[in-house]
Design a protein around this nucleic acid. Structure first.
Length: 579
RNA sequence: CCGCCCGUAGCUCAAUCGGAUAGAGCAACGGCCUUCUAAGCCGUAGGUUACAGGUUCGAUUCCUGUCGGGCGGGCCA
């Protein structure tokens, strides 16, 4: 791998350093890939780093280091350039070696060692199961899935988790919405609350319940009784909804649980199917309600109490989060005795920590950033190491069609669903476009571009490179397994060596992407690799008459196809055999 | 008013955790299919990295301030 090459070069430099400047022998040596080919295959700024302490001209130091370097092996030549950079040019034979390594490793090329692997949990999506996932959730899903796969490939043990908010008021509102639609089917028609769930899927659920159970859940409800003495006025809209929920619970009695459960199962199932089709899977679906049922919320709050981080005010119980850097204290238990969402979140995170992960990663929408301080504060207050919790914020995605922003409003139920997006542009383009940007950047999602079957579309550009590789191999019709033993010495052209060097960068790209939680690094890497392959493909014929060159080039192509496939898999994008 | 994120080519974005002459794609212009897939390639053009200071061999990157944009600041989730 490139790592071998790099460590060989680093060792050579370190030896030279020990003889030129013994006092600086322990200074870390960093090798980087220069942007320009003229600057060699690797460059080191070590002379610049130590010039100050040696009080010598960095170019002179670099000159002496170069003189000490061994030549003729891996290092073809070394030059001093610029302010004192040492540019290293690697021999062609050392560069192309990567091809046989790739063919030997196959789907495992680029995989990090499990030796330093840590146990990591990635929690993502976690959307309320109160309706279809929309395009905003889609980004979190694509990002989280790619990140999890990336960390796993980098050598860590990963558990993917979806936190199901099945206990809160939003679920009650969904149950109420369903019931009101159901009642309307039996002529019990009241004005549908504007702040209840508007979507057609609610009516669909109501019809299903009617078809299965007839009028069993009407329970003598009348429009007059439901509407009597409701809080009035614009500002009481939420209170009105709560009153309706209370009446629904009262009238339905034990049957309320059925409506609630039906709506939950229906929406969660829909969500699960949607994500599965999107290539997004979870090891664990964690129920918020289970935190209450097993007393974990109570326990977490009691622990905070025991440690002296709670106080009573205005009838509510407050957590003193300002003691941990938050802007203001937060309520964990309301005046009415109900725990807040924050309370169950504390219990949830405490539970994650109890499960023994080395690291816990939460992926949240950027609008939740104000939440970070209080959650970390609560963990610290519980005596846990909040440094193990990392929050990755994902900015919003805005859709564009025909150059125009696609307007979306959740309130009016006018949002584009993830399912619609997948149907329009396909899973591959959707997965790829979602992770093409750094997660903390706003994403402009161009629907027309994602759909276009042209070189403009980066997904097809990369997939096409893979298909071309397959096509050449088909044309050749030989035994691909034999290519792993091919003699690579005929590969001496600039494009071939550039391609080999790029292939060798893949493990580093994986490592960097995993380290920075940045799947987009893989996407950009693949674009670069595909570009270099297309360039090579156009300039050189692969199936040439001379057998040794033909086999060497075929081996190179096969290696390119393997790395593209490995990279695309991390992004959840398919690598087609033909297009 | 306070907090977080951001500001790079006409547009959408990169830039190897401080490196060399800031790179791609799209849009614009000019070329390349009798040969392994033209969903491709080659070339031209495009910049005071929002602005002003500071730190040092060296700043798109780190610090301060200004301007501009996004998101937050509920006993909502």
């Amino acid at each position: 791998m490139a790592e071998d090459l790099k460590s060989a070069l680093t060792a050579a430099l370190r030896q030279a350093l020990a003889s030129v400047a013994p006092d600086c022998a322990s200074v870390p040596i960093v090798l980087e890939r220069p942007k320009q080919a003229a600057h060699g295959d690797f460059a080191s700024n070590i002379a610049l780093q130590i010039a100050r302490s040696l009080k010598q001209n960095p170019r002179d130091i670099a000159q002496r280091l170069v003189r000490e370097l061994p030549h003729g092996g891996v290092i073809e030549r070394a030059e001093v350039a610029g302010a004192g950079f040492i540019n290293l040019f690697v021999a062609a034979s050392a560069k192309v070696r990567i091809v046989s390594r790739i063919l030997a490793a196959g789907a495992n090329f680029g995989r990090g060692s499990a030796a330093d692997g840590r146990r990591v949990q990635v929690e993502f999506v976690s959307a309320n199961p109160t309706g279809p996932l929309h395009v905003g959730h889609g980004r979190g899903a694509a990002y989280g899935a790619s990140l999890a796969d990336l960390l796993e490939f980098a050598g860590q043990t990963v558990s993917r988790e979806y936190y199901v908010n099945d206990a809160g008021r939003q679920m009650d509102i969904l149950a109420l919405s369903t019931w009101l639609r159901y009642l309307a089917l039996f002529g019990v028609d009241i004005p549908f609350p504007p702040n209840a769930y508007q979507g057609d899927y609610v009516t669909d659920m109501a019809r299903t319940i009617r078809d299965r159970h007839g009028d069993h859940y009407v329970k003598g409800a009348t429009a007059a009784a439901l509407l009597a003495d409701l809080p009035a006025g614009e500002e009481a809209a939420e209170a009105r909804l709560d009153a309706l929920i209370a009446r629904a619970k009262h009238l339905l009695g034990a049957d309320y649980a059925y409506i609630h459960q039906h709506a939950l199962a229906e929406q969660l199932g829909d969500c699960r199917d949607d994500l599965a089709q999107f290539g997004v899977h979870f090891e664990n679906w964690f129920s918020e309600r289970s935190l209450y049922d097993t007393g974990m919320v109570e326990k977490a709050v009691a622990q905070l109490e025991r440690r002296g981080h709670l106080y009573q005010q205005d009838g509510a119980t407050w957590f003193r989060s300002t003691a941990f850097g938050d802007e203001k204290d937060r309520v964990v238990r309301r005046e009415n005795g109900q725990y807040t969402y924050f309370a169950s979140d504390i219990a949830y995170h405490a539970n994650k920590f109890e499960r023994g992960y080395d690291r816990v990663i939460d992926i949240w929408g950027a609008d939740h950033h104000g939440y970070i301080a209080r959650v970390k504060g609560a963990l610290t207050a519980l005596g846990l190491d909040a440094g193990k919790l990392e929050i990755a914020l994902v900015q919003f995605a805005v859709l564009y069609r025909g150059g125009q922003k696609v307007s979306m409003s959740t309130r009016a139920g006018q949002f584009v669903t993830l399912r619609e997006l997948r149907g329009e542009v396909g899973n591959d383009a959707a997965r790829f476009f979602y992770v093409l940007r750094k997660s903390d950047q706003h994403l402009d999602f161009d629907l027309d571009l994602a759909k276009s079957e042209s070189s403009d579309n980066p997904v097809y550009y990369i997939q096409y490179a893979h298909a071309r590789v397959c096509s050449v191999l088909r044309e050749w019709a030989g035994e691909t397994a034999e290519l792993a033993q091919a003699d690579l010495s005929p590969l001496v052209g600039d494009r071939e060596l550039t391609l080999a060097a790029r292939l060798a960068d893949f493990p580093a790209a994986v490592r960097d992407a995993a380290g920075d939680y940045a799947p987009h690094v893989i996407a950009f890497y693949l674009k670069d690799l595909a570009a270099e392959f297309h360039s090579f493909y156009n300039a050189e014929r692969i199936l040439v008459a001379a057998e040794s060159l033909r086999l060497a080039r075929l081996a190179l192509c096969l290696a390119v196809g393997q790395v593209i496939a490995n990279g695309l898999r991390l992004l959840g994008v398919s690598a087609p055999q033909s297009m």
